[in-house]
Design a protein around this nucleic acid. Structure first.
Length: 533
RNA sequence: GGCCCGUUCGUCUAGGGGUUAGGACGCAAGGUUUUCAUCCUUGUAACAGGGGUUCGAAUCCCCUACGGGCUACCA
């Protein structure tokens, strides 16, 4: 948390901010989520998007989606679509993005190509950047040389650039000739030699880096596309982004971005930064990565993803049976907390409670067990109609056809013991088919010599129950126990074995109501005839 | 290697000079239940280490250790 930054909102949701550099600037909150379509978004990316969204909505601002596809070599077909579908599934809706027509668009960097060149040229003209003609081999040789000499960082920087082929070392004529001849070139930033770069991070406070540690990063590539660094600064400026909320992996290059704002003369409208702690692998160390796929025993992706190149499929939270509400809830609490003991939050509640000041500094490991607990909660609070519909669909895929009415009864009865809809179905199989075998251990303990006789007698009584519903069955069964001097501990386990096939499950009267008279009696009599211990 | 960031129960975390260091998940025990599960109750378990500053440090400062990120014409 930075001591130098305070902010508060008014009722219009405008954010006034004040920091040590800028004075009393009033601006609308505009944030962006800027993924690269190089594959599926993993849960860490979704969390970044979520925090951006929450922050924007909290302050009545805009949330934009910008596709950072400046690396044409890494483009993966379907990735952009996947990203959008993932956000939509989570309920994270963007105000501006690909597909929305707006003065700030387009929102794909590949469609903004010409814009960047103009600013790269501006930097060249003002002496803040320069052309470089070095080949990959020459770059490699330079790194090796510095490494061997131990004369500094093996990088293209204010020291080494003087021994390279660029518009700082070459004559003006030579540079002109090379450009005219169409020789490959890049544009690099000319990092100041001796300057302290200070940035205020909302989460981390003041971060200082000396410019001598920074290298002359490529801003504009030989293929005519900008690198992330240039594109991101130019777009954030043009799109009037007020806060850059992104992963901690960007912290080391944040000083470069500050330098770019300064060099382009945009320092007064530079956004505020907030670098989020990373999501870590639950086993061992390191940040969670796409490569982790299903290796850890739980999905790392919001939605299932099929890699178009390898054909490999990675599972997603949606397909694993998670409700988007649960996924969003658990993600929100991974790195942020409200300062109260509330843990269950709807998206609306998150919007109301969220603040960057309460985002922690250290990385968090994801706990699959707690994820299940969240889903359990949302399974209980879901309208039972929805649960039944999902059960119907799942059962249908397994070739089972059931009425919604029956499934609703089952869902009501069974869901509290399940974490996922599919678990309800798994634990409810006895509703759909009669036991084909009986749990041996349970039978051994509870199926007594006289159990078949008692059950047959009970079946005869149940034959007459009217109506055949939970209440009547319950009443008649208890009356039966009393009249026949049979305790519940004696009758019920056997009855359960007959109806369910094992020693588990909910209330037997309710089970019988759902099964119906015919099926219930058939099961009881079948067990009485056939089960021998 | 260099630069930067971090470190409270197993995990997510509260707590920011004086607390029995709080909650949640998990785990364990007990209760409820005709069974299993749910549910309820109780319990288990943490300030990385060392120096300071202070009457007093989990909290402020320094060092160490450990972990992480970055170090591409990737984002």
């Amino acid at each position: 948390m930075s001591g130098a930054v305070w902010h508060w909102t008014d009722h219009q949701g405008l954010l006034f901010y004040l920091n040590s550099k800028t004075k009393n600037i009033m601006s609308k909150v505009r944030v962006r989520f800027a993924p690269s379509p190089t594959g599926p978004l993993h849960m860490g990316g979704v969390r970044t998007a979520l925090y951006n969204y929450l922050f924007a909505k909290k302050h009545g601002g805009d949330f934009l989606l910008r596709i950072e596809d400046t690396d044409q070599n890494r483009y993966v077909p379907g990735a952009e679509q996947y990203i959008m579908e993932s956000l939509q599934w989570c309920g994270i809706h963007w105000d501006e993005g690909p597909g929305t027509e707006n003065a700030f668009g387009p929102y794909r960097q590949s469609e903004r190509k010409e814009i960047y060149r103009q600013y790269a040229m501006q930097l060249i003209e003002s002496g803040r950047a320069y052309y470089a003609f070095d080949t990959p081999e020459e770059l490699e040789a330079m790194r090796k040389r510095i490494e061997a000499e131990k004369s500094g960082n093996p990088q293209y920087d204010s020291r080494s650039r003087l021994s390279m082929k660029n518009s700082l070392t070459l004559s003006g004529d030579d540079v002109e000739r090379r450009l005219a001849a169409g020789e490959n070139y890049v544009i690099r930033i000319k990092t100041p030699e001796n300057e302290e770069i200070v940035l205020e991070d909302i989460i981390r406070g003041t971060v200082k880096v000396h410019s001598s540690q920074l290298d002359d990063k490529v801003l504009f590539k030989s293929d005519g596309m900008p690198t992330y660094h240039l594109a991101n600064v130019v777009d954030d400026y043009l799109m009037k982004i007020s806060h850059v909320i992104r992963g901690e992996e960007w912290l080391p290059s944040a000083p470069l971005h500050v330098l770019l704002y300064q060099s382009l003369g945009w320092e007064a409208s530079m956004p505020q930064f907030a670098h989020l702690p990373l999501l870590l692998k639950p086993d061992g160390n390191g940040k969670l990565s796409k490569r982790d796929g299903d290796r850890l025993g739980f999905p790392v992706f919001p939605l299932q993803w099929k890699d178009p190149n390898s054909g490999e499929t990675s599972s997603g939270y949606r397909e694993a049976g998670y409700f988007p509400e649960a996924f969003v809830n658990l993600l929100a609490l991974l790195g942020w907390n409200p300062g109260t003991e509330q843990e269950i939050f709807s998206l609306e509640e998150l919007v109301a409670s969220f603040s960057l000041e309460r985002v922690g500094k250290s990385g968090s490991k994801f706990d699959p067990e707690k994820a299940k607990w969240f889903n359990h909660h949302y399974l209980q609070s879901q309208p039972v109609e929805i649960v039944a519909e999902q059960m119907q669909e799942m059962a249908r895929q397994q070739g089972q056809e059931n009425t919604l009415e029956k499934l609703q009864k089952i869902a009501t009865l069974m869901r509290e013991r399940a974490n996922f809809v599919y678990e309800i179905l798994e634990q409810s199989q006895f509703f759909f088919e009669a036991p084909t075998h009986y749990d041996e251990g349970f039978a051994k303990k509870r199926w007594k010599e006289d159990t078949p006789e008692i059950l047959k007698k009970l079946a005869d009584v149940l034959e007459e129950v009217e109506p055949f519903d939970t209440e009547s069955i319950h009443q008649v069964t208890h009356q039966f126990m009393e009249e026949n001097q049979v305790g519940a501990g004696k009758l019920m386990p056997g009855l359960r074995l007959a109806l369910v096939g094992s020693g588990m499950g909910p209330d037997l009267s309710t089970i019988m109501e759902i099964l119906g008279r015919e099926e219930s009696l058939q099961r009881i009599r079948h067990a009485a005839e056939n089960l021998k211990v």
